[in-house]
Design a protein around this nucleic acid. Structure first.
Lengths: 293, 293
DNA sequence: TCGTTCCTATCTAAAAAAATGATAGCTGGG
DNA sequence: CCCAGCTATCATTTTTTTAGATAGGAACGA
């Protein structure tokens, strides 16, 4: 059994037919027939049931199919490993959930592209579950998603592990002081993790039915909070200056399990290019000290 | 690039020479030379430095080598997947640390071999770290080891998560009553996890310098404890009957972080045979209810 | 210094394997 | 009943792989 045989096998399985497979493989049907027959005789098992309208995987064939994929990706990774000489270069396709992007991506990416000018970075913004699917389908090399993630094919590294705090204008010394009529919940994305948690926290503290205000960037949100337009929920690490200047006030929500972990997930069998490895190093350095730039 | 090429590549890398590789591959040297040359020209990189005394991997070659292994094991797994028709049969090579073996192996294995008569079970008893190495080297399909285990190539499942209790004869109502002169620490293995913990717990409770008594089986240990010969430390799940009959007394050690996790670890890229899958199902069922037999 | 040994590179002819194109045979649907 | 669409098989050509022989370079020891 060889990788070539498995390629043919995979094509036949996918198209459920030798003619169609031959077309894809740029060869002729008789050839495909022979290869499959030889493969079957080598393995001592029928891999397909022959029907007048095409081929159908037998149980043994169905068991083989995922391994055919594995062999293919292993060969693929091998090819890339040779090409990748350790200098980060070429495309880097990653994903991020919206809030992580808003809070940290600029910081991470700007320092990265400065030190690695040969890499073409592309960041796709989606929800965590969409990103996870894209990573599983190998459409992304990895993605920042909300933890925890448990999947046998995924490896996850905790990059950010942040305590969340409620932010308000300095006048609000206690969350119960909030004027429900005039104060809004300010969030990066409607329905996001932060939105849901903020709602839960406020409800728990007797503040109910606040209107929503969705804003796209961290700076605008902070401005609006400072001016008393509403409250928001953010990791305490990103607030820094404004708080020190007394423009906003933080409210601990220690009781409410408000720790958010952001993982970088990638396929375990995926190839870690130099560009990706360097990006992760950079991200971890940034997470350890965001001012590092 | 093909799996065959990688096999040749691997042999040359391993033997650091084409003649020696040719010998292993049952072919001639000229052939090996050609294959390597073709592979290099296909990849566009030199994989070896040619020296008068043999070949030495270049940086690119060194990057390729682990992927060559991966391709080989992927092909290996593919072959096995076809052969393995879902009925557990054939060899099953696993390992276990001593204490897990003493406490649980009989229970797990006896029910397993009863339901899966075609499997040849072999259990190797070693320390956790030795077992982990053996699993990594693919000498074992998996092993019961003490958790936690963190290794990128290993997948671990928690099978047993047990609370430890100190056992004594019924007369000892408090550990401080222990007569240091006459009472011994009874353990399955000198220096084991249980031994070390028992020592620490007793020291913490002011009981010091007990002599050691090492016994091979659980039954003997329980007997000796019941007769007042000494104290021991065991998972609370395995004690059952004797305690209910009032022959031994348990002493909680809640304070001292005495929870022991036993993981079943295996290589992530290893093939999970039907025999192994069935064994793990069986083990989990046993762990959930040890009386299930 | 010379010969021996161990290594890789290269060439040619033979053998093996793979691809092709043509043909036959099967089956279900119009 | 014939046609469309499929797989199996065969003879032929093409490509790839293998074997065997030879050349050349470098280290080692007598």
């Amino acid at each position: 059994m060889d990788a070539r045989d498995l390629k043919v096998f995979e094509a036949v399985a996918r198209h459920a037919g030798m003619n169609r497979a031959a077309l894809e493989l740029h060869t002729v049907q008789s050839n495909v027939t022979t290869r499959i027959r030889l493969l079957e005789s080598e393995l001592g098992t029928a891999l397909f049931e022959r029907h007048t309208k095409g081929m159908k995987l037998t149980a043994a064939g169905a068991r083989l199919l995922p391994h055919a994929f594995e062999v293919r990706t292993a060969l693929d990774n091998a090819r890339r490993a040779v090409t990748d000489d350790g200098t980060p270069r070429g495309p880097l396709n990653i994903g991020s959930r919206k809030s992580t992007a808003a809070l940290h991506l600029t910081g991470m990416v700007s320092s990265y592209i400065a030190t690695h000018p040969l890499v073409d970075v592309s960041v796709r913004i989606e929800t965590s579950s969409v990103l996870i699917d894209m990573v599983l389908e190998r459409k992304l090399e990895g993605a920042f998603v909300a933890g925890p993630v448990e999947h046998p094919d995924l490896a996850g590294d905790v990059i950010f592990d942040e305590e969340l705090v409620v932010l308000s204008s300095p006048e609000i010394t206690d969350l119960s002081m909030i004027d429900c009529e005039r104060t809004k919940m300010i969030v990066l994305g409607k329905g996001s993790f932060y939105h849901q948690h903020l709602e839960a926290i406020l409800a728990q503290r007797g503040v109910k039915e606040l209107r929503l205000l969705e804003l796209g960037t961290l700076e605008v949100i902070m401005g609006c909070v400072a001016s008393g337009l509403g409250v928001t929920l953010l990791p305490d690490g990103v607030i820094g200056p404004l708080q020190r200047e007394g423009k906003v006030r933080t409210h601990d929500v220690a009781g409410s399990d408000c720790r958010v972990q952001t993982l970088f997930v990638r396929r375990r069998d995926g190839f870690v290019s130099s560009a990706l490895a360097a990006f992760l190093d950079n991200a971890r350095a940034y997470a350890a000290d965001p001012t590092i730039n």
